[in-house]
Computed example of a mutant assay.
Amino acid sequence: MTRLRGTWTAAAVTLFLLGACARTTAGAAAGDAAAPGASGNPPAPAGDALVLRVEHYGGFVGTNLRVGRIPDVSVYADGRVITQGPQIAIYPGPALPNLVVLQVTPERVTELARQATDAGVRSGAELGRPGVADATTTRVTAVTGGAKYTVDAYALSEAQSQDPALTPAQNAARTKLAGFVRELTDLSTAASAAKPEPYVAQKVAVLATPWVKPGNDLPKQPGPQAWPGPALPGDYVSPEVKQGCLTLTGAQAQTVLSAAAKANANTPWESGGQQWRVSFRPLLPDENGCNDLRTRQ
């Protein structure tokens, strides 16, 4: 499939001319903005530069599921919007997640970046902590002026709209941020949206843990498959659950993705005389490998 790309226009360039201010996180001090590439990774090509992202972390999930979570939505400078498409309601599900990409105009990206500012991503608003246990934290990221700004909101979608543990100002700030998050995550379903197409990854991270036989009440599954890539499990990203990670690019990535398309989430893969359960995480345009996933748990 041809990768969707928008025309780079002056409207898109304005994204990088917006004034910079301190990076903020809810409950954290401002002033720690970091320019793209500060982690040692080379800067992304202009079209692959991340502008906006909504993702979740934390919550009551297993340690082995924290690394490799797919962001709810990622918006890039050339107008690509990458999100998760409909998921098949079967168990076990497909081995590969259903990622889709749609195209918006660079002007729309500029508008959304300004809306992020209005919604408090760069304001340093105190969002508080509502009285909800084991909820996820929503992180909204905006990249403008060569710097990255984030705001974290615990239990943004789980808490009451007027949570008694929060002040009126905190409730109002959370309502404004939640409205922006809904608009961003609903881009693919907007009436004016172009039809989403499958996202074709050029790189993939594979997360491997020792395979454990599922319960006997499940339908019979296909037998072990020969692993077509480099030896598993790779470098450990979660040593406590023996979860390793490998980054594959080029022909290796395409070979592994082709094999994964015929497998399900519980398929045992044989490598080095051992069976492994593998999660396949297509890498997004701004992601370089396992380290990006490790640092965003």
Rank of each mutant, 00 (worst) to 15 (best):
T2Y: 04
L4S: 05
R5A: 11
W8L: 14
A12L: 09
A12Y: 02
A12E: 12
A12D: 07
V13P: 00
T14A: 12
F16I: 08
G19V: 07
A29T: 07
A30L: 07
A30C: 12
G31W: 04
D32K: 10
P36V: 13
G37I: 13
A38E: 07
G40F: 09
P43R: 13
P43K: 09
G47T: 06
L50F: 03
V51I: 13
L52M: 06
V54Y: 03
V54K: 02
V54P: 00
Y57M: 05
G59N: 03
G59D: 03
F60Y: 08
F60C: 06
V61A: 09
G68Y: 04
A77P: 00
A77H: 05
D78L: 01
R80M: 05
R80L: 06
I82A: 06
I82P: 02
G85K: 08
G85I: 10
Q87M: 01
Y91R: 10
Y91W: 14
G93Q: 07
G93W: 00
N98M: 03
V100Y: 01
V100K: 04
V104F: 03
T110R: 12
E111F: 14
R114V: 10
Q115V: 02
D118E: 12
A119V: 12
A119C: 13
G120I: 11
V121G: 04
G124F: 12
E126K: 15
G131S: 15
A133D: 15
T136K: 14
A142K: 06
Y149N: 15
V151D: 00
V151L: 08
S157P: 00
S157C: 07
A169W: 07
Q170M: 15
N171H: 11
N171G: 14
R174N: 06
K176D: 15
A178V: 14
F180P: 03
E183T: 15
L184T: 10
T185P: 01
D186G: 12
S188C: 13
A191H: 15
A193M: 11
A193D: 11
P196V: 12
P196Y: 10
K203C: 02
V204S: 04
A208N: 00
P210G: 03
V212H: 01
V212A: 05
G215D: 10
G223V: 06
G223F: 08
Q225W: 00
L232Y: 10
P233N: 09
P239R: 13
E240W: 06
E240R: 12
V241H: 02
G244R: 04
G250K: 13
A251P: 05
A251G: 05
Q252G: 14
Q254E: 14
S258P: 07
A259P: 08
A261W: 03
A263R: 02
P268V: 04
W269H: 05
W269M: 05
S271E: 13
Q274L: 13
Q274K: 15
V278E: 00
S279N: 04
R281D: 01
R281E: 00
P282E: 03
D286K: 11
N288P: 03
G289F: 05
G289D: 13
R294V: 14
Q297G: 03
Q297F: 01
